[in-house]
Nucleic acid binder design. Sequence first.
DNA 1: ACCTTATAGAAAATCATTTTCTACAACGGA
DNA 2: TCCGTTGTAGAAAATGATTTTCTATAAGGT
Lengths: 139, 139
Amino acid sequence: MDLKDIQQLLHEHKFRLTKEREAVLMAFVDARRMFTPAQLHDYVKERYERVGLTTVYRLLEALTKVGLATPFLIDGEIYYTFCPNQHHHHFVCLQCHQVKELFQCNAQQAMDVDQKIGTVAYHKLDFFGRCRSCEEEKH
Amino acid sequence: MDLKDIQQLLHEHKFRLTKEREAVLMAFVDARRMFTPAQLHDYVKERYERVGLTTVYRLLEALTKVGLATPFLIDGEIYYTFCPNQHHHHFVCLQCHQVKELFQCNAQQAMDVDQKIGTVAYHKLDFFGRCRSCEEEKH
DNA sequence: ACCTTATAGAAAATCATTTTCTACAACGGA
DNA sequence: TCCGTTGTAGAAAATGATTTTCTATAAGGT
């Protein structure tokens, strides 16, 4: 999924991709890690250009609405990660906040929620720990 | 896990179980559903006795800290559910907010996160949908 | 019973998020 | 390409959930 596709998806939902949003989007996509809105704001400011915090909030809201971003709740903080793909899971490094996608998914079958309980609309499966490079960091 | 065990666990962490906290705890445990702090506050006020909202926040924080409550992020709202057991997963009804625990867990084996990625400290697997009774409600 | 330490709850403070507002930019049609 | 419509940027203000503060009180150990 590249910029064109993202643009089209946003467009279908009547969101316009301005240069400001594009700057935030580029930063967000490239980073491959999770951010709180304020963190992403700082990150964009440093690397790309100065944009308003409101703009960051609005893009994150838009991306979440069209299914391109996922919020995580960790230690009471809400982090967002860019999620271009349909259904997948995550490995989240609690140290460097890097996020990796895992595509293989056997959870639905593996768990097989009983009909007596209800009907599953969707599920979430995420792994948290330390990524390889964070582990190697401390000798 | 009964009240005695909860009391002991809180005690180990130097939390005291006062009558106010006990009222909130009873409500929370009995309900078997998820609440935002404000919702739980209302619920306790109606059914048990009047307690301060601050007290509700503090109990939820304490329970989360000792591993007896789990927060869910749904539509931007943070909901808490009482989680007495070690490792398990959830079925969350998005309509009535009822929560059921699922104990069988093959996720770790089923997914088998690659060593190259990192080391998993814990994982979360939750199912969202409509529970049986909500489904039957509308004929 | 006494002493230390945690708690209740109201009130105030904090701070993340949302709303408001105005000038401006993007898109689509002529 | 120009124009009208509609969404957007960003600062500033408002909102509202959550946290902190404070004082009297209660809990639990000794």
